[in-house]
Design a protein around this nucleic acid. Sequence first.
DNA 1: CCCTGGAGGTTATGATATAACAACGATATA
DNA 2: TATATCGTTGTTATATCATAACCTCCAGGG
Lengths: 152, 152
Amino acid sequence: MTYNDDGDEPEDARGETEETIKKRPPGLPKNEKLVWDVLAQSDDPMKAYEILDCLKEKGVRAPMTIYRALDGLERKGHIHKLEGLNAFVLCNHEGPHMVQTFLVCERCPKVRELEVRSVEADIEAAVDVSNFQMNTARLEIKGLCHLCAGAE
Amino acid sequence: MTYNDDGDEPEDARGETEETIKKRPPGLPKNEKLVWDVLAQSDDPMKAYEILDCLKEKGVRAPMTIYRALDGLERKGHIHKLEGLNAFVLCNHEGPHMVQTFLVCERCPKVRELEVRSVEADIEAAVDVSNFQMNTARLEIKGLCHLCAGAE
DNA sequence: CCCTGGAGGTTATGATATAACAACGATATA
DNA sequence: TATATCGTTGTTATATCATAACCTCCAGGG
């Protein structure tokens, strides 16, 4: 058995992943696949220890395992960390991008990732003026989501 | 002695604050003044436990004390938290503002706060379209500062 | 065959942050 | 004065988040 025994689908035999819509990127090591699948089944961002809880049943015991997988996934651009929540979400679009924009509800756990071209352009311009060499940027917008705002 | 014995200047008797340029807002409780003064003397963002170390000599013993003061200062808009660094900086401009923008160097501890009107406008527009009720936003831009970029 | 490097397992610990409760001082007001 | 209340502070304990260090396994290349 190798560390990269890629099935195209999760090896899970119990049908837990039937609602997964997103397609898991190929070539991930075992633990990164496990973590990716957990995140894919969650509508909301998840904390490292929550992911760990979900994977206890699969034999994962140590936080280290989760953090290593998260680190790998993040370096490959498959997930983002929401620093304000200490939580992680799948990236929801193709290709690399410099500015990640999130709408974070303060009343419910919902987070949406946006892609806002005009913001990206403005940022690049402003940063340029400041003589700063941008690598990545993360914009976390806090407030009330659609539903929570409606409910006052 | 009251909890709000405002002197206009830090009560520090040893001249440690001689380089302070910023003007501490009036009416702060004792611990918030202490923490504000520490941040004012630092060019760079500081972590809670670093602030605590600086205030050991003034008799502050517990992390709680620092976190409470930071919380008060943040709610009043006098400081910001850089979530990506778990660190805190003085706010560098007047009046309330919805979007905080930071240039965070990945090679040295330098962080600059910007005010970028065009970005703010774009964000508000984009958020509006998304049917989201924005409260605040924080943009953390990572890369190489001026000096570090020059040094390759 | 042996070496190497990526991936993984495990234990321990470090770093960050909050809960809970007690005590104090200022202010208001009866 | 009495006493109620509120914000601030002090203190202890604990929760939460993250990494260091060390060892093993195994696939692939000389």
